[in-house]
C-alpha cells in the first residue's frame, strides 16, 4: 500500500543536524557529479520527473534505507537507463559503453545548460475535468492512498494524510496527475489544491491546537466532506 519513501510522521529517525549557511553546496565531488549526471541524462527525454521519482521509490526498501541521498539518485538512474534500453545490464557490469547510442543528438551541450535550466518544465496542463472545489470547502482524502491505475504505482498522497478531513486553501490550476504520468499513461491533468489539515486530524498527540499541515493534492484524491 505504501513505499519506504513515504515517511511523513514516522517515528525513530532521531535528531536533525542543521548546517551552517555557508556549508558547501556539495559535500563530496561525486555528489555534484551525481546531480549533474542525473539532470543531463534526464535531458535525453526518455523519462519525465514522475517516472524518475518512481524509479527511486522502487528501490528495494533495504537499499533505500541504507543509501545516502545521491546514492539513491544513482541507483534510480541506473534502473531508468536499463528499463528504457538506453544502457544494457552488460554495459553496467563491464563499465564500458558499447557503441554510440541512437540518442546522441539529444546530448546536452555545455553551452545550452544555462538556457535549459532557466526554461524549466512547468506541470500545468489544460483539463476537461470541471473544478469540483473552491476555497474553504471541506474535503476528505482517500482512505487508501495507493495508485488506482497501477498497483504499487506512483502517487503523491502520503499515508499520514489518508482519510483525513481538511479544507481547501488554494487552487493551483490544473496539473499533470503523477499517478498517470509516472506510468506513461498520459498527463491526466486535473485540478490541484492546497488543502489544510489541523494537526489534531493527523496526529495522536499534536504539539499545538492551532497548528496545521498543508498538502498539495489532486482532485481525484479528494471527496466532499
Amino acid at each position: 500500500m505504501t513505499r519506504v519513501h513515504d515517511m511523513g510522521g514516522r517515528f525513530g529517525d532521531g535528531a536533525i543536524v542543521p548546517e551552517t549557511e555557508n556549508a558547501p553546496v556539495f559535500h563530496e565531488d561525486w555528489h555534484a557529479r551525481a546531480l549533474a549526471l542525473t539532470l543531463a541524462a534526464g535531458g535525453l527525454g526518455q523519462w519525465n520527473i514522475d517516472i524518475s521519482r518512481h524509479a527511486r521509490e522502487c528501490l528495494p526498501p533495504i537499499d533505500y534505507a541504507r543509501f545516502s541521498y545521491y546514492e539513491k539518485w544513482m541507483a534510480g538512474l541506473a534502473g531508468l537507463l536499463v528499463d528504457t534500453g538506453v544502457v544494457t545490464r552488460a554495459e553496467l557490469a563491464e563499465g564500458i559503453g558499447q557503441g554510440e547510442s541512437v540518442l546522441t543528438d539529444k546530448r546536452l551541450k555545455a553551452e545550452n545548460v544555462a538556457g535549459v535550466l532557466a526554461s524549466g518544465g512547468p506541470a500545468d496542463r489544460p483539463s476537461d475535468i470541471p473544478v469540483a472545489f473552491k476555497p474553504a470547502d471541506q474535503v476528505r482524502t482517500r482512505k487508501i492512498t495507493g495508485n488506482r491505475l497501477v498497483d504499487g504505482g506512483h502517487t503523491r498522497l502520503p499515508l499520514y494524510a489518508a482519510g483525513a478531513v481538511g479544507r481547501i486553501v488554494r487552487i493551483h490550476g490544473t496539473h499533470i496527475l503523477p499517478d498517470s504520468s509516472a506510468h506513461r499513461l498520459g498527463d491526466g491533468a486535473e485540478s490541484l489544491y492546497a488543502v489544510a489539515f489541523a494537526a489534531s486530524e493527523l496526529w495522536a498527540n499534536p504539539e499545538h491546537p492551532k497548528d496545521e499541515v498543508v498538502l498539495d493534492l489532486w482532485q481525484s484524491y479528494l471527496e466532499p466532506a
Binding site: R33, A40, I96, K106, R107, N112
Partner: peptide
C-alpha cells in the same frame, strides 16, 4: 558515479563539460 558517467560519455550521451557547467 564515475562508471555511469564513463558509460554514458562513451555512448555519446553525456558531455562532461555540460556536467561541469551544471
Amino acid at each position: 558515479v564515475k562508471a555511469l558517467e564513463t558509460i554514458l560519455t562513451q555512448k555519446g550521451l553525456i558531455d562532461p563539460a555540460a556536467l561541469d557547467e551544471i
